[in-house]
Design a protein around this nucleic acid. Structure first.
Lengths: 199, 199, 199, 199
DNA sequence: GATGAATGAGCCTTCATTCAT
DNA sequence: AATGAATGAAGGCTCATTCAT
């Protein structure tokens, strides 16, 4: 009658540690024992809460994606105008990055690895995420706000890639020396400019 | 003094094999022996031509980047107008992807990994590449073709991210079902639309 | 002083579960948690009743051996003739196997493992068991029923090995397709034939 | 063009070391690194020659079994009389044990473990071995030398078990204090006595 | 006593790299 | 230069055991 009574806060602590460690060293060069140490638990405890190292990364992704999706849906639900919606979406995106850059790095840097992840592991949450953008674009086209020749399938990916990379370079702090606010405004203006119907 | 008598064609064969293998399985999950097998050489031969596994990936990147940069410079040298230059740049970009998707995948998927590469290893070629875009943008702003409030540092990265992701999803063939031609046109139109001065 | 309030029926349940699990998967490839699950108790409970995993196997053996020995002694006590005694012994042996094949498999398969058990752990019960056979043989020789040149030390082991293996192959059900009844009769006839004095 | 050029003598050395180590400590409590050390090679070398630890045990068994089978066939080929054949078989058996007790212990003690081995892994060599005995019995029955009511399927297993256990206890040196010569003679006499037709 | 989450020692296995041929 | 057998460091994962509840 084994009743699983795992502590959600310990699971969360491990995920949080994993974010930190993976962001610092990358998934493959990170050791499970590094995550354990960061989380202040024994190595074996990781395996009480996660199936294996891969599962740690996937869980990380899925867990947070659910929150993110909810975040976006809540924030956008009250807005009717597609233009305003997209503007708001972009604002929220960069705001989230600002608040949790480590996590963002794990998402962006690590989940790009095809094998085992975005390739094999088919990711519904990621598709849902893309479709938030897609839905806004669709609506905008229907409402006659965005260009009628927009290929939404292409555009949603383009927008994702654009903001993702701008955020990523900001996090890495490498070449790009700009504030996220500035970036958000620039990206927002250009994209909205680029897709709206010109008068 | 050790006189090296290395055969450039063998080096090239190994790099070509590395592209294939890394694209298929990812850098970390690929084995040096996989690359050797694909190249038709012995494991040890890899180490005659490259210092280690990391060097293989970096060499891959640098070698090809030099070609790519030359490609762009040649193609853009005859064009004076910034708008046409950017249009041409985007066209060439997607054309390259179409011709060598495997290589593109290695670039895009694997070089995103921070550790040891884009983070520690400071990549001048990548910066040069970004600056091709940057230079076009600068010129366009100076020529009064692109919006004067463009933050070129943000925009060049945004454009890179946009086209990179569109190409990447096309390669992965996952959600995105579109032709590269269609994508090129869509991306081109939106970006140019977005950054040019509205009349 | 710690006053133990252990429930004998729980201890028995654990041992019974251990028999099942060890027989199914072997001692080393079985997990303590498998035994716990099979017994319907928590992992930790095993350690309330047994010192460790090894102790579980040894207890299993010793507990059951006491029963088995008593069984044999009861059954043989009324028989005077050595020939009849041995005949009866063999009959009872196969009958026990038939009634509890799982346990038999644990005995036969697992206790063969030298390390920690039959080698280090000196097993008086096993010796007592062998000596039931040995005593019958001794008596038979003294009574002039069995060959006077019998080396009882060898013969008791030979008989043990013979019946053990016949039973074991029957349990495994591998190559051997025979009924235990048939086997018992064959073995009995051959052994008795082989050791009795020829007229 | 990777040409496997593994050295058979190194493979043999590893197997020999494995015999020693497994006999000493048992398969499960032995470490691969113990075998490597005993063989004087690096841990990794084991995996050049064998797939994994299990494969080491199975290879051990199969390799030696082939030799043993050949040994028996050669030795028995010149003998026509079934009685003499069986007598010779038993003599050779104990002689082999005497010459290589360690190997015998691995066979007898370790291969009894059901899981992964005699159970899952279906073993043709073992069956061939049993059938050497079986064939002699068959012939003896047909030639009117052995009892016509012999169930060969039971008897071959009984004989195997008998000699196996006698040898095993001799190796363990536990309770049984007898010479192998004495044992061979005792077992041989009893079995032959037991199965031949009484006049 | 019973529980099961937590522990961490230990081991198999992988694979980048070396080096004798 | 080319080879590939050999190496051994390193790490993911298991699971017997403990102990706070």
């Amino acid at each position: 009658m084994k009743v699983r009574n795992l502590k959600p806060e310990k699971r969360a602590a491990i995920l949080k540690a994993a974010v930190k460690v993976f962001a610092r060293s990358g998934f493959y060069t990170s050791k499970v024992s590094d995550v354990a140490q960061e989380a202040g638990v024994a190595d074996g405890t990781i395996y009480v809460y996660f199936k294996n190292k891969d599962d740690l990364l996937i869980s990380l992704f899925e867990d947070k994606m659910v929150d993110i999706l909810q975040n976006f849906r809540d924030a956008l639900s009250g807005i009717v105008h597609a233009y305003k919606k997209l503007e708001r979406f972009l604002y929220i995106y960069f705001e989230m990055i600002r608040q949790d850059p480590l996590l963002a790095e794990v998402f962006q840097v690590e989940l790009r690895q095809s094998d085992k992840f975005l390739k094999d592991y088919h990711n519904q949450n990621f598709l849902d995420y893309l479709n938030i953008i897609g839905d806004i674009l669709h609506q905008g086209v229907e409402d006659g706000i965005f260009r009628s020749d927009l290929n939404v399938g292409v555009m949603k990916i383009m927008i994702f890639g654009a903001i993702d990379e701008v955020a990523r370079q900001w996090i890495l702090g490498a070449d790009a020396k700009y504030s996220l606010e500035e970036a958000a405004e620039q990206v927002s203006k250009t994209i909205l400019n680029g897709i709206e119907i010109k008068l």
